[in-house]
Simulated assay, not measured.
Amino acid sequence: MNELRESILAVGTADPEAAVSVHALLGSDPALLARAGTLPRTRAEVPDWVKAGFLRPDSPFLELFAGGVAAALGEEPDESVDKILAAATVRPRTRYDLRAQTGLSEADLDAILPVLADAGLLRPDPNPLEPDDPFWTMDDRFARFHYAMLHQHLPRWRRGYITEKLWRLTKARFDRYVCRPEFNRLAREWALNDPAAAETTRITVPDPRFRQMRSLELAVWDEKGGLLALGTVRWRFQMVERQLKRLRYVKRLLGDPPARLYCVASRVDAAIAEDPDPGLFVITPAQLLRRGRGEAPDPAPQGAAAAADAAAEPSPDTLSDKARNAPESTPEGDLHPISRLVGGRNRRVG
C-alpha cells in the first residue's frame, strides 16, 4: 500500500522535499542513482544538482531524458503525440481537455491514447464523478521531465551557452510539473492508510454559479463510494488561507458531506494552523514519509528511512476515538488544533 513512500525512502536522502525531488527524476533505481553521483541533501541543493546532472551539454542525463519518449515508443514521437504528452505534463486531462488543448479529434485520441498507455507514458486514473472519462496522467519520469523542461528549448540546452538564463525561465516548471505530481501521488498513497479508504483520486467538481470546474488533488473514498476526505496539496511553497477556503467551497459543492479536510504542505498560514475545526488536518512532507509503528522497516534504514523510523507512529489501537477516524500514519498531535502549528510540539489527545 505504501510502495511510493518506501521507494522515496530508499533514495536515502533525509530531507523529505529533497528526497521527493530526486525520486521524481530517478525513482529509486540503484543504477540511475549511482550514475547521478552525490545527491542533494537539502531542497536548497536541488537546483544546482538538476542543472549539473540534467541540463548541461556534458551532463549524464540530458540525452537520456531527451530521448526517453522515443525509447518508450520505439520511434520518434509525431506532432500529435507531442501535443498530448505536453498537455498531460501540465496536469491530468480528460478526453474533453485533450481535445480542447490539442485540437485533435475523438478518432485521433482513440488511436493514440491506448498506444501511449501501452508504452507506459500515460495512465488512465479514475475520475470518480465521471467514471467513463478517466484522467489521463503522465506516467513516465523521463517523458515528464522532457516535456516540462527540455522539449521547448532542447537545442539551446544542448548548446549550453545560456543554461543559467534558461533555468531562470523554466525553474518554476520543474517544481510544478516534475516534483508536484510526485508529491500529489505520495499524498494520495498516504491517505489510503485510513482503514476505511478504498480509493484515492483527483477530483474535478462543476461550479454552476461561476461556470467553472473546481479541482482538488486529493479525494478519499470508501468501498461504497462515500466521500471520506478532501485535500489540497501545496508543494514547496506556503499554503495560504484562500486554499483552505477553496477546499471548503468544493466540499459545499459536493453537498457538504461529513468529510475530513487535509491541507498538505511544508508550511501553512497561521490562519490555517490555528483553525479550530476538529476535522481539519495539516500534513507535512515528513509525515507523508513516516512509517506507522505497526509497519516493519527494512533492515538498517538509511537517510530519510532512518529519520522516518525514528518518529514512527503509534498503533491506531492506542489512539482516541477521534484519532481512529484519521489515517494510521497521522500523528496523534495533528488531531489537536494547537499541534497543527508547523514545527509545533505534538500533544496527545484522548
Rank of each mutant, 00 (worst) to 15 (best):
E3Y: 11
L4D: 08
R5E: 02
A14R: 14
A18N: 05
A18I: 09
V22N: 03
A24V: 01
D29V: 11
L33P: 04
G37W: 01
W49R: 03
W49I: 00
L55N: 13
P57Y: 04
P60R: 11
F65A: 12
A66M: 13
V69M: 12
V69K: 14
A70V: 08
A71K: 14
A72F: 01
G74F: 12
D82K: 07
K83A: 07
A86N: 12
A88D: 13
T89V: 02
R91E: 15
P92F: 04
R93T: 05
T94A: 11
R95F: 01
L98Y: 00
R99W: 06
S105V: 01
E106T: 09
L109K: 01
D118K: 13
T137L: 12
R144W: 10
F145Y: 14
H151W: 06
H151V: 05
P155V: 14
P155E: 05
T163Y: 15
L169W: 15
A172I: 00
R173N: 12
E189F: 13
W190A: 09
P208Y: 01
S215T: 11
W221I: 02
W221M: 03
E223L: 15
K224F: 15
K224E: 06
G226S: 07
L230Q: 04
G231N: 03
W235H: 08
R236V: 05
Q238W: 00
M239G: 08
E241D: 09
Q243M: 11
L244E: 02
K245C: 00
R246H: 05
V250A: 09
D256S: 11
P258W: 10
A259H: 04
C263D: 07
A265N: 01
S266V: 09
V268K: 10
D269S: 13
D275P: 03
P278S: 12
G279L: 03
P285G: 06
P285I: 03
Q287I: 11
L288G: 04
R291F: 13
G292F: 13
G292A: 07
P297Y: 11
D298S: 05
A306F: 09
A306H: 06
S315P: 06
D321G: 14
A323I: 04
P327K: 02
T330W: 05
L341P: 08
G344I: 07
N346D: 13
V349A: 10
